[in-house]
């Protein structure tokens, strides 16, 4: 499906893999998203940023169907998926890394990985697992360890490998390197790049607070403030040299943000 997106005043024509248009979402009576739109195209490495509580996680939850928006439409590969269950969206190719609580601590590492591969065919399970363990080699020695005993970095790696077991075409990552050392954080990014290169991941949308590392990785940036999309850009590189340009959006109140 072909549609028009507005980016910094320019109109760009593109085929989008996933698009969410004019999303309103609330928790009970508290509205969190206000007419938020996002569009992810193939080959995108989209960075979704914004202050704490801006609604980034909420937006991702809407995309996978954990939260039902009160207004708005979501399309994936040209199909309207607004009424699909979470399971259907996941099995049709969207992988989602939760911001927290993304492993089962009471199960072993192996059991967690198998749980990640629940919806794939039995006969590819072993191959997939081997592929994943090639990338996250250190998990090999810990397959029978209770996942709750892993360190923060190991947990995050396990959580990502669980998502990658399904070989999603689109990867939605909510702070994959939260709480990690800079070195571990950049290795997580390496792994994501690797997944995009060899594991058939076509596009990635990532929420990340560590701008230094992630701006180098991204090729598109969306700024969300107060539940509204405040800014969209195709050149995240320029903010690397002039971070103050991006910061100005953060200090703007939601009411003043251009939508």
């Amino acid at each position: 499906m072909c549609w028009v997106t507005r980016k910094c005043g320019k109109f760009i024509l593109g085929f989008s893999m996933l698009s969410a248009v004019n999303i309103d979402a609330s928790y009970g009576r508290k509205q969190v998203l206000f007419r938020a739109s996002i569009s992810i195209e193939e080959q995108d490495r989209l960075l979704l940023v914004g202050p704490n509580g801006a609604g980034k996680s909420t937006l991702l939850q809407v995309l996978v169907g954990l939260l039902v928006p009160s207004v708005g439409k979501i399309e994936f590969s040209g199909r309207n998926i607004s009424s699909w269950s979470t399971r259907k969206r996941i099995t049709s190719g969207i992988g989602y890394l939760l911001q927290s609580e993304n492993i089962v601590p009471g199960l072993s590492v192996r059991e967690n990985i198998l749980l990640g591969g629940y919806s794939i065919k039995r006969n590819v399970l072993a191959t997939r697992q081997a592929e994943i363990l090639d990338v996250f080699g250190f998990l090999k020695d810990k397959l029978d360890v209770r996942a709750g005993l892993l360190s923060g970095g190991e947990r995050q790696a396990l959580a990502i490998s669980m998502v990658l077991m399904q070989r999603p075409r689109l990867l939605l990552l909510d702070e994959p390197s939260a709480g990690l050392s800079p070195k571990a954080a950049s290795s997580v990014l390496e792994n994501i790049k690797h997944a995009q290169d060899v594991m058939g991941v076509k596009a990635v949308c990532m929420v990340e607070h560590n701008l230094k590392v992630s701006l180098k990785w991204a090729n598109k940036i969306v700024v969300l403030i107060g539940g509204k999309v405040a800014h969209v850009s195709d050149e995240p590189g320029i903010y690397l040299k002039q971070p103050q340009k991006l910061e100005k959006y953060f200090f703007k109140k939601a009411s003043e943000a251009e939508v």
Partner: peptide, 22 residues
């Protein structure tokens, strides 16, 4: 694995859902 998912459902309901379990 299904029953392990059932077991995990109590503490990690959202996770079980986003891993594509029914």
């Amino acid at each position: 694995t299904f029953m392990k998912g059932v077991w995990a459902m109590g503490e990690k309901q959202r996770l079980v859902r986003v891993l594509g379990l029914p």
